[in-house]
Every structure is written in C-alpha cells, then in structure tokens.
Design a protein around this nucleic acid. Structure first.
Lengths: 209, 209
DNA sequence: TAGATTGTTAATCGATTAACAATC
DNA sequence: TAGATTGTTAATCGATTAACAATC
C-alpha cells in the first residue's frame, strides 16, 4: 500500500488507467463488488500481468487470494487521474462539431464542463449554443485566463489550429483535445490528445482488402 | 526500391504513416517539392531515424544526399494505405454526433464516403440526413452486406455498441471507428479505432494540477 | 489448512535511436 | 570532388510477459 510517485510513471501506463476505470465502472453498475486482474483483463482483452503491473505503480490496491474491491479501485483511479473535481473546459469553434460536443452528455457525467465557447465568425458571436453564449476569439485569452481554465478543446479548421492552440497555452491551458487535422507544435509539458477521424480510418484501411 | 511485405509490419509503424501523409500533403500544398527525413521530423516533432526506418519497411523511396520527392512519397503512402480508391462507410447512429459526421467535409476529401446511415429510432427512420435517408438497423446487416461495405462508424450509445458491432462484422465489415464509450470484443482480424473524448481528457488530467 | 490471487522480479520481446557505409 | 542524406545495422532503451514468493 506504499505510494510511490518517486518513479516516473510511463505515459502508456497512464493512458490505460481511464480504460480500466471505465470498465470497472460498468462492473460496479452490474453489481460486481470484487474482481480480479484476470477478470478485468478478459473484459478488456488485455493481460492480467499488465493490469497488476500498471496498478502497482501507484500502490497495492488488491488483496492476495481475493482480488480488488471494484468501488474502492474506481475511487483510487479517480484520485490518481485527478477526477475528484469538476474540470472546466474552453471550447473553440462553434461549427457542427462544436455543437455536437456541447450537447454531448458524457462530459458532465464524468466531471467535465464546457463553460466557454469561442468562434471567430461575427455571425455566430453573441448567439446561444446550449446554455452558453458564443464569444469572440478576441477575448479568448483574457477569459480563459480569468477563469483559470486548464483544458481546451479545438474544433476549428486545420488552418487556425496552431495559432489558437498557442493562445490557449499563453492563457494557462495545459491540456488540449485537438479535433483539427494537424499536428500541433507546443511547448514541452503541454499535453495534447488528437482526434482525427480521417487519420483513424487511414490506420485501418491498410489492413483491408 | 524493393517491396518487402515479407516482414510483418508493426502496427505502430502503420499508425504513423497517415500522420506522415498528412504532413507531406501540407508540404506539397506549400509548394515544397523535396524534403528530408530531418525536415519532416522537425515538423512532426519526431525523430528522423524513426521516419526513415518506418518508410524502409515498404521500400526505398528517397535518394541519398537529396531526400524525398514530396509528391512521389505521398503517392506511395496512399498506395501502401490503400487510399487510391473510395471507401464506402456505414454510419450507425443518427444523433448529434452522427449528424456532425455526415456534414464533416474531410471524409469525402480524403476518399471516404458515408453511404448508409442507420438508426433504431422509428421517429428517425425515413428522415433525410444530408443526402441520405436514415434506415432501420433491422435492415442494416443485409444492406451492408449487399453493398460490400467494409468500414463502419459506431455513433450509438455504449449499451448498443457491442451488438451493433457484431452485426456489422457478420455483414462483412472489417474496420470499425467506434465513438461509443465501451471496449468492443470482436474476432481477431477486425480492426477497431476508439474515439472517446472523455477517455482522451482523462489521459491528460493526470498531468494537470 | 488449501486455494486463489496479488505485487514484484527477472526474462523476454519489441521499438527507438545512434551511427555509418553507401551513394546521389 | 565535397556535401548531404538515405537505408540499414547494431546498440540501447523501454514495455510486456512469465513466473512465483508472499499472503489473504
């Protein structure tokens, strides 16, 4: 049960934790109170040794002979991933995608709240989107900084993405979910996750005949 | 310039090729005719040795002392990734996300065409979505098989995803882009790419304070 | 106690990187 | 030729997996 953040956690380990948390949450909903690395591995189509090793970076959460208390492990994973608070998000781009994201219910269910929306189109500025009012990208930096927002979602065209990303970082954002189809060049330490449906599809067509 | 598919290509190598292709396409648009592994690496924030090694799995596309012809390399990458044809796609789920995907212009620009849309909501069946008519999931298997469609996009709730995915696979689909927040259990050989904004965000909050 | 499963070590496997001969 | 950059090998690095003592 020792905490050991002394070691640097491999990024690839961190990237698996949300998957574990999601599956464990399903299991809790199914009424499963206790599980094993083997059962979890079977559901996730991964290896039980990997799961145990991943978890052991953060401490010993199980009991020999028994396994893991599902609710307890969920709670620990939420703490590790800093999910025991609500994260405010700035969304940039109020097109079709931005609209879909605003209405996406999973965000609020999991402690993420889009609290600012920006667009550079004068036609859109001032309009309502869900419960928010679309603001000008000109005030973006100030507003994001003022509210202390740390997460940005980029739903802008590729051509605008780099500049917007830089401004978000200047405003204090440390994590960007990028839907624009372009690789961003940002200072080390800024986290970026890429979502580009075309890239994802192209990763699969290689295997199709 | 030898072709050597003899070796199995590591999945991680394949997954980088679309990123190379995207950046090279930008470079071509910028009027850059010739580039080097070093220049490409700088733009992608990766290593030049990695780029050369990745490409060498498929043949020698460059010239010592000179580098790579941008257009030529783009063409080769398109061939490797099987992007020299149009891929028809079946979209399942006509909610906000499905709507956004239908209107997403990048698909057709890159040779992907959503040609069937399904939903299980009787209210939606028969309605138009873009240029398509929403069809019942009851006819999904038959229609997908009849048209020989190999790619599916899942934009359904988590609770429906596994069943829909299995039906798509039975209908001959070999690649699934899954927007539902759940891990799918499918036969080996079926490719799946996951897009779950919540998971992506949770991979970054670990690093935020 | 007998059975089960963890947490951890060591072995294996695979990916990245450095280095350089080949060559344009 | 001199300079540059590829394609490839070998070294390094890191991640996965197997195995098992510890222990519930």
């Amino acid at each position: 049960m020792k905490q050991r953040q002394e070691t640097t956690i491999p990024d690839i380990v961190v990237s698996r934790l949300p998957i574990y948390l999601r599956e464990l949450t399903f299991m809790a909903q199914e009424g499963i109170a206790v599980t094993s690395s083997q059962e979890l591995a079977r559901r996730l189509r991964s290896g039980s040794a990997q799961i145990r090793k991943d978890l052991s970076y953060f401490g010993g959460f199980g009991k020999q002979g028994t396994g893991y208390q599902v609710e307890f492990l969920c709670q620990k994973l939420r703490e590790i991933l800093h999910l025991t608070r609500v994260w405010e998000i700035a969304l940039v781009g109020a097109g079709d995608l931005g609209r879909a994201l605003i209405h996406y219910g999973e965000f609020i269910e999991h402690g993420f709240r889009i609290s600012l929306v920006f667009d550079n189109n004068p036609q859109k500025i001032g309009q309502r989107l869900g419960e928010l009012t679309i603001m000008s990208t000109e005030v973006m930096k100030d507003e994001v900084r003022r509210q202390g927002i740390k997460i940005g979602i980029l739903a802008v065209p590729a051509s605008a993405a780099q500049k917007v990303a830089e401004e978000l970082v200047e405003a204090g954002v440390g994590a960007i979910l990028n839907y624009a189809p372009v690789t961003l060049s940002l200072p080390a330490g800024v986290r970026v996750q890429y979502v580009d449906p075309v890239i994802h599809l192209q990763r699969m067509t290689f295997y199709l005949k």
